[in-house]
Write a protein that binds this DNA or RNA. Structure first.
Lengths: 344, 344
DNA sequence: CTGTTAGCGCGTTCAC
DNA sequence: GTGAACGCGCTAACAG
């Protein structure tokens, strides 16, 4: 690993000159610059960002902290953050908090330890403690999907009230009056705001809100499925379900399918959030599913084993089995069979 | 930002003792340890990972370089990498290469600059140049979805040949003989292997392979849609399409829908790779779509403006409009008859 | 325009 | 068991 000193001696100049050439600050004679650049190329010199960060107290990296990467909402947020940050020459350190306040705290410490210049912070609960720490250290922070709290901090979110109202109005326009709201857990602003939008639209239409049809569950597919299943036992039965997140919506669809309810003929469904491939109305795809999680996990374990020296044999080439899942896109017959192939 | 010296003077010991306590190496008297820990807690001391990395030459962070985060395959790989790495106390630096070899190179340099201890490297083309650099620097690397190349390096991938064969056999078992293969671009091992599996299964069944039905396109939804649309003009028409990736599969479904083809009655579809919400057979979800990309991009821009000092006014609270998308889950009108019948 | 020097915050000898 | 001193690789301040 060539250092700035190697380059300097190679080019017959001082380290300061190399630094000036590499960082583009300060004036250097054309000739010296040439020699430095040649030495850089020859030695494959890459400036050590750690040392640079230690000196400049800026790391040109930002932290991205989100509750759940596979949630389509956060996935696309993450993609965009990475795009914009890398275009601006910033690295992104990824943190998946699993919606745990404790992990949020841990990650904030880790990111501070790495001297991140700022943090994009997505959370399902107002992350007061974590944000306060960031503030104390003077690290700029932008909150996603949460209000600025009592602390002064930037925030960005979608129009929850308006979106929920539009969705509810749409359902009302379809003639529905008995509408259930499957929402996320208490404490999240988005949850409150979506409920508010729902109630506003219902009130405007003079439709009664049956409080027993409003529920709060984690933003997960399983929770949506469970809740929707119990919901269907309530009489008179709902004619429409409004779900507060994409996973809840998919879960509800699954429950309806399990209960033999036609959608939208028996029960209509509408959800907050969209996913990139939600558009097709086609029956679902037969697939050869790769063990995606295992692939990532194994790769990382292998890497860590190399890093720690636990593994030092010849290179390994691991090939993991693929799993065939037959669905309606290719099999006219086997409707129930495909359900067995539940994913992890 | 408290440093090790602050803690040391606060606890009345030397920095070396603090270091020993914090890193857990070396023996320290119980009393000194207590005092140090108290000082750490009081000052909110977080060891500076940069300085530590500079000294130890290890950063406890790994790079994750993938072509496309929103691809369900890489998404789940990324999730798993983050899980495993963070459980082992390693940070993950995310890089989205957009399948560009140039960006891969850039990212490798960035990761080297950050002294990553290793790299999990997913690529759509053998990333020879980039891997060679990593090897030269002695940075452990694990390749995802590519073979070890001529360089000695670990690799992990799914069983492409076996999966493709199973998928093709399934289609053959459904009575299909005239099967198209919509595959990815040349040069990727996964593409070659999937084609090989396809050909093997066809040969075993004595089914002829029509070379005009085999195509190579980027792994994108748009490419899949375009290619499937032109494919449908070929006579005799195919009765089944095997797509090499999830996005190609969804694109094909969309083209079939556009052409008024019933799936699977007119044309069956089966794809490599699965996505987490592919399971439902229900009609698709009406949604209030948030501007996910804009949210992430705006948040990052706001953050960078704070970091660079371009913005120093009071906190901003941005709320972006939501977009209602009406689909079949709530609108009885727009269901093509052919489709509704396919469902029970 | 360029070189010398002094730390950034930490881990690590090597004395005590 | 503990502290003083050095250096990781780099940039910034100051000379020259």
């Amino acid at each position: 690993m060539a250092t700035i000193r190697d380059v300097a001696s190679h080019a017959g100049v001082s380290t300061a000159t190399v630094s000036r050439v590499v960082s583009g600050r300060g004036h250097v004679s054309l000739e010296a610059r040439e020699r430095v650049l040649a030495a850089v190329a020859e030695l494959g010199y890459v400036p050590n960002a750690l040392a640079r960060g230690l000196k400049t107290r800026r790391s040109r990296s930002i932290g991205l902290l989100i509750p759940e990467l596979v949630d389509p909402f956060y996935l696309h947020v993450a993609q965009a953050v990475e795009d914009v940050a890398s275009a601006a020459g910033f690295r992104v350190i990824l943190g998946n908090s699993n919606a745990s306040a404790e992990r949020e705290r841990t990650y904030v410490d880790l990111m501070l330890a790495h001297n991140v210049d700022g943090v994009v912070f997505g959370s399902l609960k107002p992350p007061r403690a974590a944000v306060r720490i960031l503030q104390e250290k003077g690290t700029p922070t932008v909150l996603i999907d949460e209000p600025p709290l009592d602390l002064a901090v930037d925030s960005v979110r979608g129009d929850n009230v308006g979106g929920a109202r539009a969705l509810t109005r749409h359902l009302l326009a379809q003639g529905h009056r008995r509408i259930a709201l499957l929402n996320g857990l208490d404490g999240a602003l988005s949850v409150e705001e979506r409920e508010r939008g729902f109630r506003q639209a219902m009130a405007e239409a003079g439709a009664p809100v049956d409080e027993t049809l409003i529920s709060r569950d984690p933003w997960t597919l399983a929770a949506g499925e469970r809740r929707a299943a119990t919901l269907l036992d309530i009489r008179p039965r709902v004619t429409a379900i409004f779900t507060g997140s994409w996973f809840l919506g998919i879960g509800a669809l699954r429950a309806l399918e399990g209960a033999g309810c036609a959608v939208p003929d028996d029960v209509a469904v509408a959800t907050f959030d969209d996913a990139p491939f939600a558009e097709s109305r086609a029956p679902f795809l037969t697939a050869a599913a790769q063990p995606v999680h295992e692939i990532g996990a194994l790769a990382t374990r292998m890497l860590l084993d190399r890093i720690t020296g636990r593994e030092c044999g010849p290179p390994r080439e691991e090939i993991l089995p693929t799993h065939l899942i037959v669905r309606a896109s290719s099999a006219i017959v086997s409707l129930p069979a495909s359900r067995g192939a539940a994913r992890r």
